[in-house]
């Protein structure tokens, strides 16, 4: 989950790994003749596609993509595929945690497992990012979160950004 550490190459893609797991001509477009679709050199090259996509009646937020993905999933407006070949067994872990804030006057953060397990697998976060035993994750504080550790792994660049304080600290 860190940029430029996967080591994707054309060979691995053509072999059916990483991008090539879907981009093989069967599930999504294949590499041959489509190089320029991805290798554009312009990080904002998806803007036209995005404006078209976002016109769909998604629930909105003010931040990030402007789309409330969690609500969109709940309302079944999107149904992202959960597996490619074999279905992993589901562990329906639903615990909601209350994380006390370090500073006075800030309401505790409410962490719902359910909203996360709808998108992720247990191993996406455990045990690398968060320890499995309560209150044993070292250095788990806002300063680390804001610089990209812990929650910041996703909630700084892909999931709703942390400008949206009220979504965790209601």
């Amino acid at each position: 989950m860190k940029v430029n550490t996967t080591e994707i190459s054309e060979a691995t893609n053509r072999r059916g790994k990483f991008c090539g797991s879907c981009h093989n001509g069967k599930i999504a477009f294949r590499p041959n003749g489509n190089c320029d679709k991805c290798h554009t050199g312009d990080i904002g090259s998806g803007r036209d596609n995005y404006s078209l996509f976002s016109k769909a009646p998604f629930p909105r937020t003010e931040f990030g993509n402007g789309i409330d993905w969690v609500e969109a999933l709940r309302r079944k407006l999107i149904s992202p595929a959960n597996h490619l070949k074999s279905k992993p067994q589901d562990i329906p872990f639903d615990k909601t945690l209350m994380l006390e804030a370090e500073m006075a006057m800030i309401s505790p953060a409410i962490f719902p497992h359910k909203a996360h397990t709808e998108w992720l697998d247990c191993n996406s976060c455990h045990p690398d990012i968060f320890n499995i035993k309560k209150k044993t994750t070292k250095h788990f504080s806002m300063s680390y979160i804001l610089r990209g550790d812990f929650c910041g792994t996703c909630h700084l660049n892909v999931a709703f950004p942390m400008n949206d304080c009220k979504r965790c600290h209601p």
Partner: peptide, 12 residues
């Protein structure tokens, strides 16, 4: 110490 804190990152 802040720079070398090892928790909170996803291992490769």
């Amino acid at each position: 110490g802040l720079c070398f804190a090892q928790g909170g990152v996803k291992k490769k």
